[in-house]
Amino acid sequence: MKTVWKRFAAGFLAATLALSLTACGGDSSSSSGESSEGEDTSLSDIQKRGKLIVGMNAEFAPYEFHIMENGEDKLVGMDIEIAQAIADDMGVELEIKELAFDALITALNAGQVDILISGLSATEKRREQIDFSEPYYKSKTVAMINKKNAGQYKTLDDLKDKKLGVQLSSLQQQAVNNAFPDKPDDEYMLIESMNTLMLALKADQIDALVTADIVCKQAMAANPEFTVAEGSEFDLDFLNSPGAAVGIRKGSDALKAQLDSTIIRLKDEGKIDEFMNRACEIAANNVSAEEA
């Protein structure tokens, strides 16, 4: 069955999104995961519906991103393969619902999706709002720059007075704020779209793009003019995060147990690394094809 991709403008406020989504209703809505008697139905509700609804922001290669294949728009990436494996283990169909990154948690708690899979780091701050599965991947945060400017960077402090591109509401936004708490707002390009940030770096509209090292790996494979700035790894210890994990509503113990079972299996079988390597290759080939 052909999937209908739902896009939401990045400029929407998260609260506005929650209200609009709640008003939509419909049979595809996710349930609260609790029966009237207080029983945990977070897993059984999905299985009865026969469909797992996953929220994500598909502008974060190699985690999740769009490609054109045989004239058709296709959603691919490591998180897509993880989502499919989770759905298969549950014995249900997979539906992807695309959302703005800064609206993911709001949509989850509004009951519009069952889980979140979007390279979402299980930070202490996020754990106050939602629960998480076992982590499936842990990356570093670094600064990607244009190779022609590599000589300007030797330590993290060399980024302090540069214009930095950062994805809105991301782990990287917190990392930069922690490293440079007095940095003025006009020295940031803080937006939701990673694709726009990549183009801004290409056009020298920003000096550096602060993102995950695996995102840099994919971007550099497709854009040889990019490189990682020397000494640019940001400290992430303050986030108290074990890594990227699947986001779920609080109290969804049955669903968490099912998710953990799949993730542990995928890690033990070496599938996570396989998914990531395949996604990086697809992303690089896709960019090369677009430029040809």
Rank of each mutant, 00 (worst) to 15 (best):
Ile206Cys: 07
Ala283Ser: 08
Lys202Ile: 14
Arg265Trp: 00
Leu259Trp: 00
Phe275Pro: 05
Ile282Arg: 07
Asp186Ile: 08
Asn240Cys: 11
Thr227Arg: 11
Lys271Asp: 12
Ala219Val: 09
Val246His: 01
Asp253Asn: 15
Phe180Ser: 03
Asp186Glu: 15
Ala283Asn: 04
Val228Asn: 09
Phe226Cys: 11
Phe234Trp: 01
Asp235Leu: 00
Val228Asp: 08
Asn177Tyr: 07
Gly243Cys: 00
Lys256Ala: 07
Pro181Thr: 06
Phe180Glu: 01
Ala244Trp: 02
Ala212Leu: 13
Asp268Phe: 03
Tyr188Leu: 12
Glu225Ser: 15
Ala221Met: 13
Ala245Tyr: 01
Asn223Ser: 13
Ala244Phe: 02
Asn195Ile: 09
Asp186Met: 07
Met220Thr: 09
Ala203Arg: 13
Ala221Ile: 12
Ala208Gln: 12
Asp260Ser: 01
Asp268Thr: 15
Ala229Thr: 13
Ala179Cys: 04
Thr227His: 04
Thr211His: 11
Lys183Leu: 11
Met189Phe: 05
Thr196Asn: 14
Glu230Tyr: 08
Leu201Asp: 10
Asp186Trp: 06
Asn240Lys: 15
Ile272Phe: 00
Glu269Asp: 15
Glu192Ala: 15
Asn277Gly: 04
Asp182Gly: 09
Ile264Asn: 10
Val228Lys: 10
Ser252Met: 04
Glu187Ile: 10
Ala284Leu: 04
Gly231Tyr: 09
